[in-house]
């Protein structure tokens, strides 16, 4: 039976998945909107694929977040609980997406084409992407490349999550006046790069097969749907130049990388 979204229930449609959110407090639903993946649209609280819950412990100002019946985090601050839900929702949508294929990658736009930096969490993608968009690139995502069957790359413009010695900070590109991608575009360059303290920018070309393998290594749902994963990444790699290079600090690497992109894309 369909249930209208209420003050304590809310549902979204994201990449073909119906995800529901419940909360014990009416005031929490507006706060939950911060965890919805980019591009989500509101839908009825019915026929749900997944359900998340956020419970406030009475009188304690602490919160427990659940995915189905499994606790994601217990007795936490509201901010920490929302962060845990946000992370898990994004991961769940990435894993079970019925639409685009999700790759772990930082993505920018440059000279009308998408540039992908495949890599898992904690490999410096966000820092590099932030440096590049401050240098004029267009922001697609610091965590996921969304690839469709035609090999186009769609934006997933969540706030950037940057790590430093002081801890983690969140950057909203539009609040900083930085450009955000309005829609999908063709991939132009795939760059397999990883931060090394003494890393020097010295790109070498990858074949289409090597590039496909690099993308597959960072495809979230490769094990559950390898056929689709190989087709989509192969299609993407067929339209892009692929290179591999170590890199040093993002502030130093960014201009060198953009020079390389200008050579490839002009």
């Amino acid at each position: 039976m369909a249930v209208r979204n209420s003050s304590s229930n809310y549902a979204i449609l994201s990449e073909g998945l119906r995800v529901g959110f419940r909360s014990s407090g009416t005031e929490l639903i507006p706060r939950l909107s911060s965890v919805f993946p980019p591009g989500s649209i509101q839908t009825d609280f019915a026929n749900l694929d997944f359900v998340y819950s956020l419970d406030e412990e009475p009188g304690r100002k602490s919160y427990t977040a659940y995915f189905k019946s499994r606790a994601l985090i217990r007795r936490a601050t509201l901010s920490a609980a929302l962060d845990s839900i946000a992370s898990d929702v994004q991961h769940t949508v990435a894993t079970y997406s019925r639409g685009n294929l999700f790759l772990h990658a930082g993505v920018i736009g440059w000279r009308g084409r998408a540039v992908l930096f495949p890599g898992r969490t904690c490999t410096g993608k966000s820092t590099l992407v932030h440096a590049l968009i401050r240098a004029g690139a267009i922001y697609f995502s610091d965590e996921f490349a969304l690839v469709d069957a035609s090999g186009n790359v769609h934006p997933f413009a969540r706030p950037l999550s940057l790590r430093s010695l002081k801890g983690r900070s969140t950057v909203c590109p539009d609040e900083e006046g930085l450009k955000v991608a309005p829609g999908p575009c063709r991939a132009g360059v795939i760059i397999a790069t990883q931060y090394k303290p003494s890393g020097a920018w010295c790109p070498s070309h990858l074949s289409q097969g090597q590039a496909t393998l690099e993308l597959l290594r960072n495809t979230v749902a490769v094990r559950s749907d390898p056929g689709r994963a190989i087709r989509y990444t192969g299609k993407l790699a067929s339209s892009a130049i692929a290179i591999r290079s170590p890199r040093g600090d993002s502030e130093v690497a960014a201009p060198l990388l953009l020079e390389t992109l200008d050579r490839f894309l002009n």
Binding site: H91, H104, R120, N218, V220, R223
Partner: peptide, 15 residues
């Protein structure tokens, strides 16, 4: 060139 297919959790752990 070979690689092991990652599980979703391997990518999410962010260690």
């Amino acid at each position: 060139a070979s690689a092991t297919a990652p599980t979703p959790t391997m990518a999410k752990s962010g260690d």
